Amino acid sequence: MAGGLVALLDDVAALAKLAAASLDDVAGAAGRAGAKAAGVVIDDTAVTPRYVVGLTPDRELPIIWKITLGSLRNKLLFILPIALLLSAFAPWAVTPLLMVGGSYLCFEAAEKIIEALAGHHAEEELAEVDTPAELEKRQVAGAIRTDFILSAEIMAIALAELPDASLGMRAAALAAVAVAITVGVYGVVALIVKMDDIGLHLSKRPSAVAKRTGAFLVQAMPVLLQALSHIGVAAMVWVGGGILLHGLTAFGLNAVPDFVHHLAEGAAHAVPFAGGFVEWLVGAVGSGIVGLIVGGVIVGVIHLIPRKKH
């Protein structure tokens, strides 16, 4: 009896060790995958705050919560199963689908840049919406739609880091990446959009340091949101152009990707003390130019299509 109990406890201990090892493997795989997707995560963080512009302060956090739920739904219910199915049965389809998503990012960014150059401001666009509820609905839908493209890129990068993992390991690692990145991104976004409220709270404290810090946060908030709006548009062009360049390379169409790559390498050699940064910067600018050209062409084609008047 005692021997049987000891054997049972040994079996339980062995299973616990196996489970712990599996969790370590999942955590390690998720960490490697998330690190590779860091660039797109930064872009996602920069893009999102512009979707609360024009909305009342009391609705900012509820809207970000809606976008967070939409982002999790995108990643866990749609992108994760599709990514696993494609990687198992149609890996050739991943790159074309990503290129379609990258083209959409380029289009959205190019359209906003063209509208800004033509004098079409965000205030005019917001004025077209009849009620705050309609504005909120449109902003949330736009944010979730853009998040879907960025999330697909994040999950594809993460999946590429797990080529030899089992199906269960890939699913667990991708789910961990999805939850961690979503919570991290939208937690930072919530802090950014409520920075002025935090500053106002600090400015009422008796401490002189707290008052100065609070006043600085309140004054910096409009500048930061405006800067993030521009960074978000630039990030969409950069990420979209980068997706297209990687897709062209995968299909053996190397002329444009090689040109951008060699240009970046040449710039890095010309500035050896900051070669890594310069190479990244020139590569990002090259990707952005490609994205802007593609997005501009799509905008032109769409605007040439006749639309029915309401």
Score class of each variant (00 low, 15 high):
A118G: 11
I192L: 14
V218N: 04
L224P: 03
A165G: 06
S151C: 13
T182K: 01
A171W: 02
E153P: 00
V209T: 12
L159Y: 02
M195I: 07
A190W: 04
T182E: 01
A227T: 12
A220T: 06
V179M: 03
L217I: 09
R170Y: 03
K204M: 11
P132D: 09
A190S: 12
L159I: 05
L159N: 05
I198G: 05
P206A: 09
V209M: 15
H121M: 09
V185N: 08
A180M: 08
M195T: 08
M195C: 06
Q139T: 05
K204H: 13
V177Y: 02
G119V: 07
A133Q: 15
V193C: 02
Q139W: 03
F148W: 13
L135F: 06
K112A: 15
L162S: 02
S207P: 07
S166Y: 09
R170E: 01
A141R: 12
H230Y: 15
V193G: 00
E115P: 06
L217D: 08
T131V: 09
I114P: 03
A227V: 15
R170C: 03
L117V: 15
I114G: 06
Y186R: 10
L162V: 03
A122N: 11
H120A: 14
L228P: 03
E134S: 13
E136F: 02
V129D: 15
V233Q: 05
A171R: 06
V177P: 00
I144H: 05
M221P: 00
E125D: 12
A175V: 03
V193L: 02
I181D: 12
A172M: 07
A156S: 15
L159S: 04
F148G: 05
A208P: 08
K112F: 11
L191I: 09
T182Q: 02
A171M: 10
M155N: 04
A152W: 08
T146L: 08
R170L: 04
V185C: 08
L224H: 04
P132I: 08
M221W: 13
A171E: 01
